[in-house]
Amino acid sequence: MISIDIYSRTPVYQQIIDEMKKEIVLGILPPGAQLSSVRELSIELDINPNTVQKAYIELERQGLIHSVPGKGSFVTEDAGAQIRRLIAQEESERIRAAAGHLASVGFSEEIILEWIHDIFRNSKGENYHD
């Protein structure tokens, strides 16, 4: 179930895109799954159908969904893998930036690595995402 904050600074269509991607990557929407129609989603979320349409067009442009005329929109086969690649790229850049920042103010490689190990030790067994 997608949740939207219409007063957020993030555009509503972007929120829909982000939520859809999250559902795809978590497998809630597996490859080949059918998306809610523009009508259904517009009514369910109480938002402007033009906005929903815009989000779907963008998802389709990114190759994450494809539409079959008269049937609806479906998750493409490699959508999950694509999103995962994108996340890997973005987040590894962030790790690099953070590590670089820490190193520049004098933290050693050992300490930084230790923190990273800690994160995995602490979250072991927990089903943690977001």
Partner: peptide, 30 residues
Amino acid sequence: KRCIYSDVLDRKTTTIITSHSLRELEDVCD
């Protein structure tokens, strides 16, 4: 709002709403 949305979907209705206040329009208009 809901009636307007369903009219947009069903019949491509075009709606114009005027207001003094931006806030009245923020969540409805495109």
